[in-house]
Nucleic acid binder design. Structure first.
Length: 576
RNA sequence: CGGGAAGUGGCGCAGUCUGGUAGCGCACCUGCCUUGGGAGCAGGGGGCCGCUGGUUCAAAUCCAGUCUUCCCGACCA
């Protein structure tokens, strides 16, 4: 491609609207433009990168036996009413009404449509398994779209849906998809981790998120230094090898703690370590009053609590509710004689005794509380967030935290949709069975943004070769110099004939301008044709990632370029 | 939805406090010059100052309303 014939509006200055690196660089490099909040146009260069990414995804899914389809973006309300999600999904679902006053929505996801498709056509175990996917534009009316392509309302997503005859088959499919995803992200050249994710009420180990590691990531993941354990912070188990405490302690007694309503204040006042203080967190879970007890130096994990309670809705109690339930103002609630439906304690609290807790009386705490003796617990459960000092739940080695960007999620759905939509088949015995489903998503646009978050420098993007819009930039330093131009044309033709995806900067611009543009868009390789090199009989090449420049002999350019290109790809850990 | 900030040529911004000729840099057009890291000189084009209403002899500027965008939070199959 000749840059003189291309549409590439680059910006020297940072756009005011962009805060994060990927957003800034995508706009500056002429890859995207915003139409309105959370909605972007993909310019030729941006679309090219997205298409390359999608192509790799498609290749690997096809290899795993998936088949591509394309489903409608506008979906009828009645399908969503069947699964109950017309009400459940909330305001993220953009509803609209057509000229016949039929309710419809823009598809934020396609479980309903695909399940409807399958239930009409699949009736026999002989037709299973099936695994269909699409690359589609989705719409979710996010409360606050932000960070450019990282969280938009309209976005390009690959979603796949699998249909199996039983759990075993679904689990096999899940593993195949896990492997396909691993290959995909490897081929994209990204540093990523697959982590156990919250699988909500379904449970089990059949939900993984694929996270691209980047400092700017919104999610935190815990990764073991020794074994393969990696989990979303929300999901990571906190373990403690100590045995359960069997001892008891002195009788509990109230102690006056005026105005001491935070753990730190109480700890300082009573000269105790915060971990000896029990935080009593009051929640309303599906309308019931619940207390969760955690050590004072720990954070309660609401997802864990919600899963333990099997609750649909979990809300922190309002100050009024706290007063009503604990008979004391906020900061003085404690588990002893607390009148709530359920009291659950974090497992860590089972390992010791002699705690400090709120006294359910203004300005008073209790000391010498023994949970076994003084409190009617519903049970112990893992309720707190993991910390970097905690041991790996699998091997007890140290864990480290990383920031990551969620770019993929695979999930075993079970019969959730097939049941509500009656997607069934007959097995060999003629028995009617529900189809077992799985769903598998990759945010394609977000993936390109994540690649940039992970790979950039002060000059711009550093694209992995597999998803760079062009693999190579060919820069003619001075197109008014006939010799330079002729040579550049010659190498342009040569590179094209070698099957290299090359962008030929043949514009009549000054060298510095061209270098800056090439660095900004992040083509992994630059081939530079200038008078200097011509005099020496060499062509200069630059590896965008390392910044290393080399000189390749002009008379043996094709072979030496292939060799150098191979090294560049290897530097990315990729096969060229 | 709560808190904060901002809307002025295509982009980035000043001007608003203290009302009176719309301005700067980049980009764009023409010419000269220049060609290894976003050059230089000269000339030029381009504005409903977000929108509506009000105050005033006079509004980008003051007042009220409204729309939009961004940031923090809440929310997030």
């Amino acid at each position: 491609m000749r840059l003189s014939n291309y549409y590439l509006p680059t910006l020297k200055e940072n756009p005011a609207e962009a805060e994060v690196v990927s957003h800034r660089l995508l706009v500056r490099a002429g890859m995207i433009r915003k139409l309105t909040s959370g909605i972007y146009t993909y310019l030729p260069l941006g679309l090219k990168s997205i298409n390359k990414t999608a192509d790799i995804i498609k290749q690997e899914l096809n290899r795993a036996g998936c088949l591509e389809v394309l489903m409608p973006m506008v979906q009828p309300a009645d399908l969503w009413q069947e699964t109950g999600r017309w009400e459940e999904y909330g305001k993220e679902l953009l509803r609209l009404r057509d000229r016949h006053a039929r309710d419809s929505c823009l598809g934020p996801t396609h479980e309903e449509v695909i399940t409807d498709l399958i239930r009409r056509d699949v009736h026999s175990y002989r037709q299973l398994p099936v695994n269909l996917y699409q690359v589609q534009t989705k719409f979710r009316d996010e409360i606050r779209p932000r960070f450019g392509l990282m969280r938009c309302r309209e976005f390009i997503m690959k979603d796949a849906y699998s249909f199996d005859r039983d759990e075993a088959g679904a689990e096999r499919t899940y593993m195949q998809m896990f492997e396909a995803y691993t290959r995909i992200f490897q081929r994209l050249g990204l540093d990523f981790r697959s982590v156990q994710a919250d699988s909500g009420t379904i449970g089990g180990s059949f939900s993984h998120e694929f996270m691209v590691l980047a400092e700017t990531g919104e999610d935190t993941i815990a990764v073991c230094s020794k074994c393969t354990f990696a989990a979303n912070l929300e999901k990571a188990k906190v373990t403690d090898a100590r045995p359960k405490c069997r001892e008891t302690c002195a009788e509990s007694e109230p102690v006056k703690t005026p105005d001491m309503h935070t753990v730190q204040k109480v700890a300082d006042f009573l000269q105790a370590h915060p971990r000896k203080i029990i935080k009593t967190m009051l929640y309303e879970a599906d309308g019931k009053a619940v207390a969760a007890l955690v050590p004072g130096d720990r954070e309660l994990n609401e997802v864990k609590l919600k899963n333990y309670l099997n609750a649909v809705e979990l809300k922190l109690a309002s100050p009024e509710q706290v007063v009503a339930w604990s008979r004391a103002k906020v900061g003085f609630a404690g588990p002893k004689d607390l009148e709530v439906q359920t009291i659950v304690a974090d497992t860590l609290l089972s390992k010791e005794t002699d705690w400090i807790t709120g006294a359910n009386q203004d300005e008073y705490h209790l000391r010498h509380v023994d949970l076994k003796r003084d409190v009617r617990l519903a049970g112990y459960a893992d309720l707190v967030n993991i910390r970097e000092t905690d041991p790996c739940p699998d091997c007890a080695a140290a864990v480290s935290f990383y920031k990551g960007i969620e770019v993929g999620h695979i999930f075993k759905l079970g019969a959730k949709y097939s049941r509500s939509m009656q997607a069934t088949f007959l097995d060999e015995k003629g028995e009617e069975k529900e189809i077992i489903m799985g769903c598998y998503g990759i945010g394609v646009g977000r993936l390109v943004a994540a690649a940039i978050e992970q790979n950039h420098d002060e000059n711009g993007i550093i694209f992995p070769p597999s998803i760079a819009p062009f693999e190579t930039a060919l820069i003619a330093l001075n197109v008014q110099d006939q010799e330079v131009l002729a040579k550049a044309e010659e190498f342009y033709a040569l590179l094209e004939s070698m099957g290299i995806d090359v962008l030929f900067d043949d514009r009549d611009e000054r060298p510095g301008f061209k270098f800056k543009d090439a660095d900004l868009a992040g083509y992994p390789m630059q081939v530079i044709v200038g008078g200097k090199g011509l005099g020496k009989g060499v062509i200069e090449v630059k590896d965008r990632r390392t910044g290393d420049r080399s000189e390749l002999p002009m008379n043996d350019f094709a072979a030496s370029f292939q060799n150098w290109r191979h090294q560049v790809w290897q530097g990315w850990g990729l096969e060229d």
